[in-house]
Each structure stands twice: as C-alpha cells, then as structure tokens.
Amino acid sequence: MAFTVSIEMNREIELAASYDEAFALLSDVPRSVSHFPKVDKLVDLGDNAYRWEMDKIGVDKYSIQTAYACKYHADKETGKVTWEPVKGEGNGLVRGSWTLTAVDDNTTRARFHTSAELTLPLPGLLKLAISPVVKHEFNGLVDTYMNNLKKAF
C-alpha cells in the first residue's frame, strides 16, 4: 500500500546580489542544489534533467527515501527558472519556478513556487499521522535552502 502527500509552497527572498549573479546561481541546477539540505545524490539525466535522491528518513521498515526528477528551463530575459516533473523517475512529481526581479544593482528579489506530489510506500492508515510530518519536513528543507541561498551572497 501507498498514499500520496500533496505539498504547495511559495516563498520570497531578497538576495544581496545583482540580477546576473542571482540568475547565474539559480539557473545552474547543481550549484543551486548544493545549497539544498539533505540531498543524498543529484543525478544528471542529460538534457538539463536531474534526479534528486534525498536522504532517507524514518526508522527501520518505516524508513523512506524521496526521489524525483525534473527537467529545468531557464529564461534570463523573463527572469524565470522553471522545472517540470520527469515521469517514471522516483516516487514524486515536482514542478515549480523561480521568478527573479532586480530591486537595484546589488539586490534581487527571488520568488519561489513549488508543488509536489510524493507517493509514500506506507500503509494508508498512517496517512493522517505522516502527512503533516512530511509537509513540515519539506517546509523546513525549503526554509533552510532559502537561508543558505541568502548566505551564499
């Protein structure tokens, strides 16, 4: 048995970086992911697609590992970095975007949006107990990522 947890989140941060510097970091997937916590492996699938394999969480038979793949597209003129799920890779479907706006020469506003559907290989009756924990963990990871990005500049 398995169940799916849906997550949607939006964040906005200001980076102490020029638009060009911020775009260079966020559009370079391996470089950007290096600031994301608890990534076990980032696998290059070619054609700007990557599989994220996260650290395992849990205990014994209730240990799970989230893995998903996304294809990335960067458009510097519009200030967007987008990602779409690669089906058939892992147990999650994740899509989202960064939207960048120059505030001034040394500050860039970065809006982050993502939605995820994670299928967890656990008994369905655990869904009510586990779903909030998974959402909390995912939010915590993204918050740490945002803080790490701010520190990078």
Results as ranks from 00 to 15, higher is better:
residue 1 M to P: 06
residue 3 F to C: 05
residue 3 F to T: 07
residue 5 V to M: 03
residue 6 S to F: 06
residue 6 S to L: 07
residue 9 M to V: 11
residue 12 E to A: 14
residue 14 E to V: 13
residue 15 L to P: 02
residue 19 Y to I: 07
residue 22 A to M: 08
residue 23 F to G: 00
residue 27 S to C: 07
residue 34 S to I: 06
residue 37 P to K: 12
residue 38 K to I: 01
residue 38 K to R: 14
residue 39 V to H: 09
residue 43 V to F: 00
residue 44 D to A: 07
residue 45 L to M: 11
residue 47 D to H: 11
residue 48 N to K: 10
residue 48 N to F: 03
residue 48 N to M: 05
residue 52 W to Y: 10
residue 56 K to T: 10
residue 57 I to H: 06
residue 58 G to V: 07
residue 58 G to Q: 05
residue 61 K to Q: 15
residue 63 S to L: 08
residue 63 S to C: 10
residue 66 T to L: 06
residue 68 Y to Q: 09
residue 69 A to I: 00
residue 71 K to Y: 03
residue 73 H to I: 08
residue 76 K to T: 01
residue 82 T to A: 10
residue 84 E to L: 10
residue 84 E to K: 13
residue 85 P to H: 08
residue 86 V to H: 09
residue 88 G to C: 02
residue 89 E to F: 00
residue 97 S to Y: 05
residue 97 S to T: 08
residue 99 T to S: 08
residue 99 T to D: 06
residue 101 T to K: 12
residue 103 V to A: 07
residue 103 V to K: 05
residue 107 T to H: 14
residue 111 R to I: 12
residue 112 F to C: 07
residue 115 S to N: 14
residue 120 L to N: 07
residue 121 P to V: 09
residue 122 L to K: 02
residue 126 L to P: 01
residue 129 A to G: 15
residue 134 V to N: 02
residue 134 V to I: 14
residue 136 H to E: 06
residue 138 F to G: 02
residue 139 N to H: 11
residue 139 N to D: 10
residue 140 G to Q: 06
residue 141 L to W: 10
residue 146 M to S: 00
residue 146 M to Y: 03
residue 147 N to Q: 15
residue 149 L to Q: 07
residue 149 L to W: 14
residue 150 K to F: 05
residue 151 K to C: 00
residue 151 K to Y: 03
